[in-house]
Design a protein around this nucleic acid. Structure first.
Length: 601
RNA sequence: GGAGCGGUAGUUAAGACGGUUAUAACGCCGGCCUGUCACGCCGGAGGCCGAGGGUUCGAGUCCCUUCCGCUCCGCCA
C-alpha cells in the first residue's frame, strides 16, 4: 500500500472534520454513477461514508472510477466537506459530510457477491454459512461479534477483580460414562485408545479447588455429540467458574454480580439484585417447565383433586390434571384451537380439552361431564371470568407439564403477551438430585454425579432417590437456561455413595473416576460453582433467534461446516497410523447411513 | 430415530388445475445521466424448476426414492 495510511474509519467523520485531508479504506457498499458525478458509499467495520468522484475537482480520479463495483476494496484520499444544502442524509452518522476524492487506489477487486452485503438481506441459511466471511461483513453480524467480545471482556475483568484465576484445562481428556455423547479422538501413540473432547471442564475445575486455587474461571470451548437445535451447537462456549469455601448463596450472588456488571457495561442497563428465586417444585407446579418465563402470567393450576371422582373418566383416572386460563381467549375459533391441539401433540398429548366461559354457559366438548361441584372447584381454582378460555391436560405428569408448559409459552408469543425488550432473570433452585431414565432403567444424575445432595438428603440417595434434592441452581433469562451449577460433593465417601446410587459397581467407579475420589481424599475443600452458556447469553442480549448468529463459524443442523466441508473422509494412511479401520467402505453418495463411517479399533 | 416447513435465474420469491415461449423484483452486463444516497431512465443476458426414478401423449405441477437447509420431539449428566 506504499505510503498510504488510513487516517479515519468510515463511521467517524462529521462536520467538525470539515476541510480535513483524510484517507479512508474500505469496501464499496453502493455506487451511484451519474456519468458525471460518481458517489460511492464506502464501508468498513465502523460504518459508511459517502465519497464523491467529481470530474470538476479531480478529473483523473473520476476518470477510472466507473470500473468500481460492489465489494471492491478501495483506498481514497480526499477532503472532507459539508454536503450541499438539502443533501444531508440524516439516516447516516456521517450523513452531514462527504469526502471529495483527489486520489484513489484499487486495493482489490471482488467477484459479485452471492448475496448482498446488507442487514436487510434475507439470504438462506445455507448460503450464509457457505459464504460465512461475507455474511460476517454485514453490520448486524459484526455487531453481534463485537457484543460477544465485550461480554467476554467484561466477564474477564469482573472475575479478575474478584480474585479468580483463569486456568486452561485439557481439550484432550478422558471419556466418562455419564452425560452426553463424547466426541472421541483416536490416539496414534496409544493404538486402540481414545481421548474425549470435554463436555465441560467439570472434574478439572474441582481438582483445581483441591489444588488450592480457591477461585478459578475459564472461558472455554465444550463439546457434546448430540443433536443440534437453534440454541445448541456441538461445540459451544462456557464461562466456567468454581469457588472454594462457599455455599449456594455465595456462588449465586457472585453470578448475579457478574451478570449485573455485563448489563451495566455492555447493555447500559441496571439490573435489580438479587434475582428472584424459585424452587424447582414450584416452577414445575406453576409453569410446567424448569426454566419458566415469568414475563407473563398464564399460570398452570393443578385440579387433579377437584376432578378425582369426575364422571369424565379421562380426568378422573389421570395421575395429574392441570388447567391453564387464557383471559379473553373465549373468542378463539375452532380452527385456532385445532392448531393448538396439534401443537401439544408434539409433547405426547392425545388432545387438548378446553372450556369457553360464556356469560350464560360453559361452552365445551367436556362441560357436560362435569358436575356442579367440579365446575365450582375449577372456577375457583382458576379464578374464571366470563370471556376466558381454559385449556386442560390430563395424564402422566411429565406429559401434562410439558404440553401445557410449552403451550403457555407458545400462546404468550401468539397473543403478544411478552413485553418487548425486557430481561427477566430468575434462579431455579432445589432441583431433584436424580431423574429416572426409562431407557437405562435406572436413576441418573439430574445435574451431574458430582452434585451435593441437599442437607439431610444423604439417606434418600438410596432409600427414595426420587425425593432427594440437589444443591443445584439454574439461572434463567426470559425462559432460557443461561447458566447452572451446584455445590459439589467434597467428601470421598459421599461421592462413592453417589456412584453406588447411580448403579456403578465399585470397580467401575474406581476405573472411571478413581482419580477424582483420590483427590477428594486429599483434603478437598468444600466447593461449588457454575457455568454460563456464553453463546446463549449473547444470543439473548443480541436479540438473535439462534446462537448461530453469535458464533463466527457455526455448524449446520447436521453438524457440518458448509464453509470448510468438515467433517470429511481422511486418507487411508491417516487411519492406519491411528490403528483404525473403517467397518465399511465410505459410501458413494446416498447410502451413507447407519454403520458406514463407524470405526473400530 | 421421528414430525413439520422449505429447495424454481446470482438472490428473494410467484407459478401447484398436468397443457403455448416458466414470471417478478433486486442483482449482473451494455448504453445514457453532475447531487445521488437501496440514484434514475433505456436495452440485454441469465433456468437440468435440488438430484434420481416412475405415471402420462405431455410433469416445475402427480407418485416413489434420495440429498440439502431450517424448526421441533426424542437426545442434550
Amino acid at each position: 500500500m506504499g505510503d498510504w495510511q488510513r487516517s479515519h474509519t468510515c463511521g467517524q467523520l462529521t462536520l467538525v472534520d470539515d476541510t480535513a485531508e483524510v484517507c479512508l479504506m474500505g469496501w464499496v457498499q453502493y455506487r451511484r454513477d451519474h456519468g458525471g458525478l460518481i458517489f460511492v458509499d464506502l464501508r468498513d467495520r465502523d460504518g459508511l461514508t459517502q465519497v464523491v468522484f467529481s470530474p470538476d475537482i479531480a478529473p483523473a480520479a473520476h476518470e477510472n472510477a466507473h470500473i468500481l463495483r460492489s465489494e471492491y476494496v478501495l483506498a481514497v484520499k480526499g477532503r472532507v466537506r459539508p454536503r450541499p444544502e438539502g443533501m444531508v442524509n440524516s439516516a447516516m452518522v456521517t450523513g452531514g459530510i462527504e469526502v471529495v476524492v483527489h486520489e484513489w487506489k484499487l486495493l482489490n477487486t471482488s467477484k459479485t457477491p452471492p448475496f448482498p452485503i446488507e442487514d436487510r438481506c434475507d439470504a438462506g441459511e445455507n448460503l450464509r454459512l457457505a459464504w460465512r466471511y461475507l455474511d460476517l461483513r454485514r453490520p448486524r453480524m459484526q455487531e453481534n461479534l463485537r457484543l460477544r467480545h465485550k461480554v467476554a471482556q467484561t466477564i474477564r475483568r469482573y472475575l479478575d477483580e474478584g480474585g479468580f484465576v483463569e486456568v486452561e484445562t485439557p481439550v484432550l481428556t478422558k471419556s466418562t460414562p455419564e452425560g452426553a455423547r463424547d466426541f472421541l479422538v483416536p490416539s496414534r501413540l496409544n493404538s486402540g485408545e481414545f481421548y474425549a473432547l470435554p463436555q465441560s471442564p467439570q472434574l478439572f475445575k474441582q481438582m483445581l479447588m483441591v489444588s488450592g486455587l480457591d477461585r478459578y474461571f475459564q472461558i472455554v470451548r465444550c463439546f457434546r455429540d448430540e443433536d443440534l437445535r437453534a440454541d445448541r451447537q456441538p461445540e459451544f462456549t462456557q464461562v466456567d467458574i468454581e469457588m472454594s469455601f462457599v455455599d449456594e448463596k455465595k456462588v449465586m450472588s457472585m453470578a448475579e454480580g457478574l451478570i449485573a456488571r455485563v448489563f451495566t457495561e455492555v447493555m447500559g442497563r441496571e439490573l435489580s439484585l438479587p434475582f428472584p428465586r424459585m424452587r424447582w417444585d414450584e416452577a414445575m407446579e406453576r409453569y410446567g417447565v424448569d426454566k419458566p418465563d415469568t414475563r407473563f402470567d398464564l399460570e398452570l393450576k393443578d385440579i387433579t383433586d377437584i376432578v378425582r371422582v369426575s364422571g369424565f373418566k379421562l380426568f378422573a383416572q389421570a395421575r395429574l390434571v392441570k388447567g391453564m386460563k387464557v383471559p379473553g381467549g373465549e373468542s378463539m375459533t375452532r380452527k385456532e384451537i385445532d392448531v393448538l391441539t396439534e401443537f401439544v401433540r408434539i409433547y405426547g398429548a392425545q388432545g387438548l380439552a378446553w372450556i369457553k366461559i360464556k356469560a350464560d354457559e360453559w361452552q365445551s366438548p367436556i362441560a357436560k361431564f362435569l358436575s356442579d361441584k367440579e365446575r365450582r372447584g375449577i372456577a375457583d381454582a382458576l379464578d374464571l371470568q366470563v370471556g376466558d378460555i381454559v385449556f386442560f391436560q390430563a395424564g402422566e405428569p411429565d406429559m401434562v407439564n410439558a404440553a401445557l408448559g410449552n403451550l403457555r409459552v407458545h400462546l404468550a408469543g401468539q397473543l403478544k403477551l411478552i413485553p418487548e425488550d425486557s430481561f427477566n432473570f430468575l434462579w431455579v433452585t432445589d432441583f431433584p438430585l436424580y431423574e429416572y431414565d426409562q431407557e437405562e432403567k435406572r436413576y441418573v444424575a439430574c445435574h451431574h454425579p458430582f452434585t451435593s445432595p441437599a442437607p439431610g438428603h444423604l439417606e434418600l440417595m438410596k432409600s427414595d432417590p426420587a425425593k432427594a434434592r440437589a444443591r443445584a441452581y439454574d439461572m434463567v433469562l426470559n425462559g432460557n437456561e443461561v447458566g447452572g451449577g451446584s455445590i459439589r460433593i467434597h467428601s470421598s465417601n459421599v461421592q462413592r455413595r453417589m456412584f453406588e446410587a447411580l448403579g456403578f459397581m465399585p470397580e467401575q467407579a474406581e476405573a472411571q473416576f478413581g482419580f477424582l475420589i483420590q483427590a477428594l481424599e486429599q483434603g478437598a475443600p468444600p466447593h461449588g460453582g457454575l457455568a454460563f452458556g456464553l453463546d446463549r447469553l449473547v444470543m439473548l442480549l443480541a436479540g438473535a433467534s439462534s446462537i448461530r448468529d453469535v458464533i463466527a463459524f457455526p455448524k449446520t443442523q447436521k453438524a457440518t461446516c458448509l464453509l470448510t466441508g468438515a467433517p470429511s473422509p481422511v486418507e487411508a494412511r491417516q487411519l492406519r497410523e491411528l490403528g483404525l479401520r473403517l467397518r465399511e467402505q465410505p459410501a458413494k453418495e446416498s447410502d451413507a447411513k447407519s454403520g458406514v463411517g463407524a470405526i473400530q479399533a
